[in-house]
């Protein structure tokens, strides 16, 4: 009877991929404001504990897209 409110697609937050300066371990976490590719950040490496990492990529992974489709 009443017009339905149109459904809008959910926005997928990309993941930020980081590489440790000391041991080259790659790690990812949800995107944070201020992140950009090739930014040096002070974050703890999960493997060696070093506090300096480089953002090497910010992108949406294929599995995130598949999850939205489901």
């Amino acid at each position: 009877m009443f017009p339905q409110k149109p459904q809008l697609n959910r926005f997928i937050q990309p993941l930020t991929h980081l590489t440790c300066f000391s041991c080259n371990t790659e790690n990812s976490r949800p995107f944070k404001d201020g992140d950009y590719v090739f930014k040096e950040v002070e974050e703890k490496c999960p493997k060696c504990g070093s506090t300096k990492m480089l953002i090497t990529g910010i992108y949406i992974e294929e599995r995130q897209l598949k999850e939205r489709e489901r």
């Binding site: 990529g57 910010i58 897209l65």
Partner: peptide, 8 residues
């Protein structure tokens, strides 16, 4: 839209 894995 935000870059996707296949493009990166």
């Amino acid at each position: 839209t935000p870059m996707r894995e296949s493009i990166v």
